[in-house]
Amino acid sequence: MNELKEKTYKRSHEPVFWGLFGAGGMLCAFITPVMILITGLLIPLGYINRSHFDYNNLHAFASTWYGALIILVLIALPLWHTFHRIFHGLHDLGIKRGRDWQRVLCYGFAFTVSVFIATLLFAMF
């Protein structure tokens, strides 16, 4: 009963990562299954003709600003979702050492790949 002084509270920056996690998770939930179905199964197995996914069409699409943006979001945003889960998953598995480094590595990887994709798309412009 001697806790009369007001406790000090430290704000977490988690909302930034949670926001990206939520957006990525939403995207994954709605569109990733059909993307996998198309690029990973239907096209390689020949159910959808390759001509629908050929170099010229795709390159032309990637060279527009909206095409580049769509591609960036579709590929990079899920990573912000997945690496958030990986970061918290490490804690769930009881790996408590070096939480700061784990954070840097997880979100750093998502960030690096995002920048890599953006650079590739920019070069195709």
Partner: peptide, 8 residues
Amino acid sequence: CIFITLYS
């Protein structure tokens, strides 16, 4: 998430 990471 590990598998979705692979896909990305």
